[in-house]
Simulated scan of single mutants.
Amino acid sequence: MTETPLNLPEDLSTSLADLAKTNGQTASYLAMDVLRDYIEHEKTLTAQIELAVKEADQGKFATDDQVAAMRARRWSRNAG
């Protein structure tokens, strides 16, 4: 494992230590877990954006009906 020094603001460092203690983990383990999740999320998001740009370059766009259906699904999830 490679050690990477990380300077955190005091409030963030305290919150990390408190949460780690509450969960019975070390602050290092919790920070690694959070960073791993964040990096994976960003990789997935980047891949989705790259695919969307490629499709747009090919002239592939959602139809009005597809956009309306997506909006309806999102609004219905947030309504209740």
Rank of each mutant, 00 (worst) to 15 (best):
T14D: 12
A17G: 01
A68K: 13
E50R: 13
K60A: 07
T63Y: 06
S15T: 08
P5Y: 02
A68Y: 02
Q48H: 10
A72Y: 10
P9Y: 12
L6H: 07
L30P: 00
A17T: 12
R36G: 01
V34F: 15
Q48N: 14
G80H: 02
E50Y: 02
Q48F: 01
S28G: 06
N78T: 11
M1I: 04
L8S: 03
D65M: 03
D33T: 13
I39C: 10
L12V: 12
E50P: 00
R36C: 09
E50A: 13
E40W: 02
E3A: 08
A47T: 09
K54L: 11
Y29S: 15
N78E: 15
Q66L: 03
L6F: 07
Q25G: 00
K60I: 13
L16A: 02
I39T: 10
E42N: 08
T2R: 07
A62L: 14
A17S: 14
V53H: 09
V53C: 04
I49H: 04
D57A: 12
L19H: 04
Q58A: 15
E55I: 02
T2A: 09
N7A: 08
Q48R: 10
M1R: 05
N7K: 10
G80C: 03
R71H: 10
E55Q: 12
S15A: 09
A69N: 13
W75R: 13
A20V: 00
D33W: 13
T26S: 15
A17W: 00
R77K: 15
R71A: 04
G80Y: 00
V67N: 05
I49E: 09
I49M: 06
D11Y: 11
T22M: 08
M32N: 05
L19M: 07
R77H: 10
T4G: 01
N7T: 09
Y29C: 10
S15K: 13
D57P: 04
D65N: 10
Y29D: 15
Y38C: 03
D65H: 03
